[in-house]
Design a binder for these strands. Structure first.
Length: 312
RNA sequence: GCCUUGGUAGCUCAGUCGGUAGAGCAGUAGACUGAAAAUCUACGUGUCGGUGGUUCGAUUCCGCCCCAAGGCA
């Protein structure tokens, strides 16, 4: 008995994932599970390039708008939510399709990462973050990790505050080093057919610039204003998203709008690069040249080949 | 037309008391185990504006030329 199949459309930002996902979902009787760490937040529509109401009416989209913007969300939560969503879609006899650009989330699903099972502790993180505010503090944290968890300390650079803090957090909460809680990858219950939406670099960068201008024209600045005036703190996780963190100073400190827009474009390009790094590592990915007029047919052919290959 | 100050990495500039040069930013590659649109790491050859001269040796000193900014006419 073969594993249930899950279709994945992944790739860098602005490469046409959503459009391809929609087209394939219509053709194949699919439902979309968003694989995006920012689209989970409500009231952040323009800057996260969320599927429109019209698109969501045509094809069900899951894991969009499931959190308030000041709430926390995590890979572990996504792992659970997405697995649940996939099972529900399968039980309806539809094709589950993961569409989005968050490489870490995809990796958690495909490699079945065991994440230690230790939830975060916001107060503790606050304390660790404060301590890491200067070089001496970061050194101190890393030294402390060296004592309780030398394996992790050797792997982590002392400037990587996020990971050093997480490792210390796990130790303080459980008394065990995170390196002993991490488990080897396991075999996922699903068979993933991963399509990668690709573009020549210069072309993608050009698309990014255009899209940022479109977001601004669509009222991104007002969206950020509304979030701030509804009481969302600028430190919220959701406000660290590209397009949001750059516009906050425009509103609160009357920073240059032009400069902020240039920053959004630059950060988007860097983000696209990091996404490529994630997806290139996914060895079973099938890259599609999105500039090719026949991409859609090629995508269907790739899926067809995958279905035949795994059913034998 | 004359005077002044500049012309060095994609950009802004430092520097070489004459031995062919280095920062920041940009860019590229990579890492990623409950923050991931986050966080972090690594990577620096370019006719030193052009051309002639002095010199064992010139990006550096001298002459001329070109370009830019400012000043005087």
């Amino acid at each position: 008995m073969s594993k249930p199949q899950v279709l994945v459309v992944a790739g860098p930002t602005a490469s046409g994932k959503s459009a391809l996902g929609m087209a394939l979902a219509k053709q194949l009787g699919g439902e979309i599970v968003c694989m995006d760490s920012m689209q989970v937040y409500r009231h952040m529509d323009i800057g996260t390039a969320k599927p429109t109401a019209e698109e969501r009416k045509q094809i069900p989209h899951h894991l969009v708008d499931i959190r308030q913007p000041d709430a926390a969300y995590s890979v572990a939560q996504y792992d659970a939510d997405a697995t649940q969503a996939i099972e529900n879609i399968l039980s309806r006899g539809h094709v589950p399709m993961l569409v989005g650009g968050t490489g870490f989330y995809l990796r958690a699903l495909t490699h079945g990462l065991h994440l230690g099972g230790v939830p975060s502790d916001p107060d503790l993180r606050e304390k660790l973050k404060a301590e890491a505010s200067d070089e001496a503090g970061r050194k101190r944290l890393h030294d402390r990790l060296q004592v309780v968890d030398p394996v992790s300390a050797a792997r982590l650079h002392e400037n990587d505050v996020t990971r050093v803090s997480r490792a210390l957090e796990v130790f303080e909460l459980t008394g065990k080093p995170i390196s002993t809680l991490e488990q080897p990858p396991y075999d996922s219950p699903f068979a993933f057919c991963i399509l990668g939406t690709d573009f020549e670099r210069a072309a993608l960068y050009c698309r990014i610039d255009t899209r940022v201008d479109q977001m601004m024209a669509a009222g991104l600045l007002d969206e950020v204003k509304a979030l701030l005036s509804s009481g969302i703190p600028k430190e919220a996780q959701a406000m660290q998203g590209i397009g949001y963190k750059e516009l906050v100073p425009v509103i609160t400190q009357s920073a240059s709008l032009q400069g902020a827009v240039a920053q959004i474009k630059q950060n988007s390009r860097r983000y696209a690069k990091r996404q490529w790094t994630w997806f290139r590592r996914e060895d079973s990915i099938h890259w599609l040249d999105m500039a090719d007029p026949a991409v859609y047919d090629k995508a269907l052919a790739t899926i067809q080949a995958f279905v035949e290959g795994t059913n034998v």
